[in-house]
């Protein structure tokens, strides 16, 4: 058992050196492997039978046909290879998911040239498979589903891309790492009413919180700022990228607090917080998040929920304890 695991690890390391992870991969000879498929091996056995027929009957035309099929097999190596070579795979996006669900990865296939590509089979081991042909269009978006693991970043591993076109006798494949990862949120877990879910904050305090109501100033663009808030006019004039800041006023904000579940295991706390975040969102309430080291100011809406769930998903506590 051990040597197998060791070999697998060494193969993985070799593969990482040979085909490093990248968001966009164009397949070339460094990345493509080719061997006879199972059908191809069967075909070779058939060729052997034909050769024996030719030898035993001393029949030159049988020799000729046997050799024609043999060389067809050899030429097929190039054609099978050409079906995969030059193909570009690009990671587009990955959808977050809850544990036990399927996440959806979106890839883009570009044939890079005008030659049609047939029967490109994509899939992760354990995930689903898609067969794609690029005949009438140069590129295609492919959605692949894959079951995710536990909370945190889910790496689907290397994507298998294979094709046996045009003869089915040879299998041409590669394992690409498109540097794809999907966020896995904590598993929502219901609990008794969250302590302090009734408003225990003074109402109407004029604390400027990131919101969408009133413009109050500029700040340097930070990754994650909404593109709608970017000060494009200024940028076109040659200034650096600036985001417009808007203020909202915290109102009856609820806090999802790490400390609200004394005694519970950290993973469980995160699950409860996740549940309540979803619940408050459903009830259209504003809510904030306080975790050791992370604070998300109160707010609501899809993007806010995403921010909160991301903070929960990536919180290290679960893995520490």
């Amino acid at each position: 058992m051990l040597p197998v695991a060791a070999w697998r690890r060494r193969f993985g390391e070799w593969l990482n050196r040979r085909i490093p992870a990248a968001r966009s991969v164009t397949l070339d000879q460094k990345r493509i492997f080719i061997l006879p498929s199972r059908v191809g091996v069967f075909f070779l056995v058939c060729l052997l039978v034909m050769l024996l027929t030719a030898i035993n009957y001393q029949n030159n035309m049988s020799y000729a046909l046997t050799f024609l099929l043999t060389t067809l097999f050899i030429v097929g190596i190039l054609h099978t290879y050409a079906n995969l070579s030059g193909l570009t795979l690009q990671a587009v996006r990955a959808r977050p998911a809850y544990p036990g669900q399927l996440t959806e990865f979106e890839l883009r296939l570009d044939r890079g040239g005008r030659r049609p590509r047939f029967g490109l089979r994509l899939g992760w081991p354990g995930g689903d498979e898609r067969v794609v042909s690029l005949v009438d269009s140069d590129s295609e978006e492919v959605k692949l589903h894959c079951p995710v693991g536990e909370r945190g970043w889910f790496h689907p591993g290397r994507l298998l891309v294979e094709s046996t076109y045009p003869l089915g006798l040879l299998r041409c494949w590669t394992w690409v790492d498109l540097d794809l990862r999907a966020l896995v949120y904590p598993r929502p877990l219901a609990s008794a009413e969250l302590p302090g879910s009734a408003a225990d904050q003074p109402r109407g305090s004029a604390v400027p919180v990131a919101g969408i109501d009133d413009f109050y100033g500029f700040r340097n663009y930070r990754q994650g700022d909404s593109l709608r808030h970017v000060h494009w006019k200024g940028h076109a004039k040659g200034q650096s990228l600036q985001s417009k800041q808007y203020a909202a006023y915290a109102d009856s904000s609820l806090w999802l607090d790490w400390a609200a579940f004394p005694g519970a295991a950290s993973e469980r706390r995160l699950s409860h917080l996740c549940y309540w975040a979803l619940e408050f969102e459903r009830r259209h309430r504003d809510y904030g998040l306080r975790l050791p080291g992370v604070t998300v100011e109160p707010g609501s809406g899809e993007r806010h929920l995403e921010r909160v769930l991301t903070a929960l998903a990536l919180h290290p506590a679960g893995r520490v304890s």
Partner: peptide, 21 residues
């Protein structure tokens, strides 16, 4: 593909040793 295989077949045809049954 067959046209490309054909010249290779000719090479094999003339080189492959003819042995008895």
């Amino acid at each position: 593909m067959l046209a490309q295989a054909f010249p290779l077949m000719i090479v094999l045809f003339f080189l492959f040793p003819r042995i008895g049954p």
